[in-house]
Amino acid sequence: MPPELAQLLQSLIGVFFVFGLVYWLFPKDKRLSPELTETDFQRLYPETIIQDIIISDDFRTAVVLPKGGNDCFGVTKVLGDRTVTKLLSANEIAKIQIGPNMFHLGVNDFTFPSFTMKLSSDNYNALNTYIKTCEEIASKVKIHAL
């Protein structure tokens, strides 16, 4: 075996050994908390007052509804555990598809193309009403039924 290949294999064994150790030792809580979502949102949009935060059924995604209704609209998703998140703003969302109790968001981003949120009936109705009454978001984002 060429020494370069042996070295590469050795590195890969090391990589997966450390990964296994981290996976085993550290907690894997995948739930978003409203506090974490709020902090994430206010870090990027400190001037925006939050009206409500709607968390999905699986606690992995959340929508932040600003009080103004038209300045921005944030969506946060947990990626690994709850310490790794992605926050999107309205202008990063290319389209919203609405199905029964769920929203599918198409994202205008190479690293993060789309995701789906499953919501309780109450949250679904609240978000649906918010989006449909928010003309600014509606004019930026294509909304249609699935």
Partner: peptide, 9 residues
Amino acid sequence: TRFEAKDTL
């Protein structure tokens, strides 16, 4: 200190 498995990988 905190580690996240996928992030570390």
